[in-house]
């Protein structure tokens, strides 16, 4: 079973590498779309169908937005890196961070054995409470929906605020009436 996850993750990594290193900007955006659909597949095989549906729809919209940004621009072929010294420094920093950061995963629980509900532990964790009492307390069969809309709905309210603010920023940046009014 984990071989499937290795294959999908390698697919995503290869798509991301092509997206980073290719010359044309439009094909780079399309490779990002391939990485996103691979992510949707891996969510589906990780038993998270809610996130798979959301990811695959969001990915379509993100592709439309990104292609709108890149198409019909004159110079979509700007590639190449920054100055040589800063490139070297960045690569070294990224490599050192990777080598140090992989040590962190030794402290994680093993893959496939989540820390929340081991049978030997008797203490009540939050996830165990949601799984055992979620249907009785909220009436929703989908535990994820009961978490995001009942137990932790305050998070969702904050998320709605963040989405509202970012959309507001985008529309304010792209409006065209204001400049004309200032002129007249």
């Amino acid at each position: 079973m984990p071989i499937l996850f290795y294959v999908l993750l390698l697919f995503i990594i290869i798509a991301a590498l092509i997206a980073v290193e290719t010359q044309n900007l439009l094909s780079s955006v399309i490779c990002i779309g391939a990485a996103g659909f691979g992510g949707s597949l891996i969510f589906l095989f990780l038993k998270a169908p809610d996130i798979a549906i959301t990811q695959i729809t969001v990915e379509v919209l993100a592709l439309i937005i990104l292609i709108r940004a890149t198409i019909s621009r004159d110079k979509t072929f700007i590639s190449g890196d920054r100055e040589f010294f800063s490139v070297i420094v960045s690569v070294v920093v990224v490599l050192v961070l990777f080598l140090i950061g992989t040590r962190v995963f030794d402290t994680f629980p093993k893959f496939g054995e989540p820390a929340f509900a081991v049978e030997t532990k008797t203490e009540q964790t939050a996830s165990k409470h949601y799984l055992t009492n979620g249907l009785k307390e909220t009436g929703a069969a989908n535990i994820v929906a009961s978490v995001i809309l009942d137990y932790r709905a305050y998070d969702t309210l904050g998320e709605a605020t963040v989405l509202f603010t970012s959309i507001l920023g985008a529309t304010v940046l792209l409006r065209k009436q204001a400049k004309i009014k200032v002129q007249t």
Binding site: P49, T54, T57, A141, N142, V144, A145, L149
Partner: peptide, 17 residues
């Protein structure tokens, strides 16, 4: 959304699409 996979986020994005 509370019985099957889905929910408000995915449904909203599909409506927009």
């Amino acid at each position: 959304g509370h019985l099957t996979p889905g929910g408000g986020f995915a449904g909203g994005v599909i409506l927009a699409s």
